[in-house]
Each structure stands twice: as structure tokens, then as C-alpha cells.
Design a protein around this nucleic acid. Structure first.
Length: 256
DNA sequence: ATGCCGGGTCCTACCCGA
């Protein structure tokens, strides 16, 4: 079983990249972030031709998430439970497949919008932890994969890339990421590679890719029973070297 | 020290991302 996550920075700009990557890497399930279109504009037929059904949760211009599967899945939620009813940001999709729940997330960045923007990120993380804890309490096999916009430790950003006050490395962001771990979730990439640089993002600017100045902000967290099945996990950094790439690369988890 | 890049949109100057 192969489960992957990828922030594509516009599916309309990256449709061919995703098609090529699906054909090459053959994930069973793939969650996408920043599709940047409404669900009706998502190229579902294009992926269907490759054997993947899809579900998109989108909005105009910003955000947007989706799930692609070559195995059957059913949609359980199209928004993060617990958020205010009037929150229209498309950042969460939750499906059931092969006896497990897979949540695809695009966690708020938290650097824009001043204090309110950061507070929104922290509140979103609180709701995510509550959701994870409710599912874990019911012993639900669970994978939460996506763009967390959090560097969990100082090993997760290249020196000089993030100011000490940045929302991606802020102690309050990290505390909420740790809450997920302490609830029982396993960071798949760190379980396989406990230390070292495993960047999932390189900024388009200032030659960040050429200088290998990246961040590790895209993660797959696994519930205990799923973590016992873990055999491999990592970022597909080669994808960043293709023409017109996303600034993020896919992160893949392999389960026995 | 972010807006140098690269998306988006009330189509073109501006908003947003990490």
C-alpha cells in the first residue's frame, strides 16, 4: 500500500506533472494541496483515464485539496470538524479506503494576516488534534497527510531560511504538532530517517533549489496500527528538478 | 529580511504563499 501527499501549487499548472508522477510511482492514494480551483474545474477525467478516481474540495484562486485513488474510497468529510460553520477555506478532506481513514490537509501558513492569521493557524491545529484524538480513541486506523506548514524541529529547515519568529517554526506551532505525536501519531519520514535533511519544499526565489536550502513541512502521520506496517517513507526530491515544478515535492509512505 | 518567483484574479496591478 502506497500513500502520498503533494502540494502542487495549482493543479491546472501541474496536471501533466501529476499524471507523469502517477504513472511512474503508482500510489494507491494521493492527497493534493493548493489545487487553486473550484471542484468543477478539477481535471478528474484526466486522472480517471489513468485509473484514478478523485474527489476535490476547492474554492476559487486559493487553497483547495483533493484525493486521488486507484483503490475504492468513500468521502467522510469535506471540512475539518469543529471549525466555524462560516469557514469557507478549502483545506480538509477525509476519506475511508481499505479499512483506514485518510485525511488530506492544507494547514494554514500563519505568517499572513497578522495576529489573527497566526491565531487561525493555531485554532486549526487545535481542531485537527481534537479530530485525531477522537478517531484514535475509537481505535480507527488513521493517516493524516498533507502540507502541515510546520517544521517540527530545527533539523527541519535549512539554516538561514526561517526567522526565529516565523509561524512555520514558532513554538506554539510546534507544540501543536507535538500534541499529535503525543496522542499516538507517528511521523512516517522521521520513523524511517530519524535525523538529517529531508526537505519537501524549496522556495522559487534566491536559488533555494540550486543551493539546497529547503524545508520539511509536508508530513504523513500514522496511527499506531498503521505505523507498525511502515516499510519506507521519503520525499521525492527529483520532482523539484523538472521544468515548471511545484515548490513542494511528493512525500510517499509505503505500508506492508 | 522576506516578496528576488510563480501562482491567482474584478485583465493588469495587486494579493498571496513559506
Amino acid at each position: 500500500m502506497k500513500i502520498a501527499t503533494w502540494n502542487v501549487n495549482s493543479i491546472r499548472q501541474r496536471e501533466a506533472h501529476v499524471r507523469r508522477w502517477l504513472e511512474c510511482c503508482q500510489p494507491d492514494l494521493l492527497v493534493l494541496q493548493e489545487i487553486k480551483c473550484e471542484a468543477a474545474a478539477f481535471p478528474s477525467l484526466s486522472f480517471q483515464a489513468l485509473g484514478y478516481t478523485s474527489e476535490a474540495v476547492g474554492q476559487k484562486a486559493y487553497n483547495g485539496v483533493a484525493v486521488l485513488g486507484r483503490i475504492p474510497f468513500t468521502v467522510r468529510a469535506r471540512a475539518l470538524p469543529g471549525l466555524p460553520e462560516d469557514d469557507a477555506q478549502a483545506r480538509y478532506v477525509e476519506v475511508e479506503a481499505d479499512g483506514m481513514v485518510l485525511a488530506g490537509i492544507y494547514l494554514p501558513n500563519g505568517n499572513s494576516g497578522g495576529e489573527a492569521g497566526f491565531a487561525y493557524k493555531l485554532a486549526w491545529m487545535d481542531r485537527l488534534a481534537e479530530r485525531a484524538e477522537a478517531l484514535l480513541a475509537a481505535d480507527t486506523p488513521l493517516v493524516i497527510a498533507g502540507d502541515y506548514n510546520v517544521c517540527p524541529t530545527d533539523e527541519d529547515f535549512a539554516p538561514g531560511t526561517l526567522a526565529a519568529t516565523d509561524a512555520l517554526r514558532h513554538p506554539e506551532s510546534r507544540a501543536r504538532f507535538r500534541r499529535l505525536l503525543w496522542s499516538g501519531m507517528t511521523d512516517a519520514v522521521r520513523a524511517v530517517h530519524p535525523h538529517g535533511a529531508h526537505w519537501t519544499f524549496w522556495d522559487y526565489q534566491a536559488g533555494a533549489w540550486q543551493r539546497d536550502l529547503g524545508l520539511r513541512i509536508d508530513h504523513a502521520l500514522l496511527s499506531p496500527g498503521i505505523a507498525e506496517r511502515l516499510v519506507a517513507a521519503g520525499a521525492d526530491r527529483a520532482e523539484r528538478g523538472y521544468p515548471q515544478p511545484s515548490d513542494h515535492v511528493p512525500v510517499m509512505v509505503v505500508l506492508r
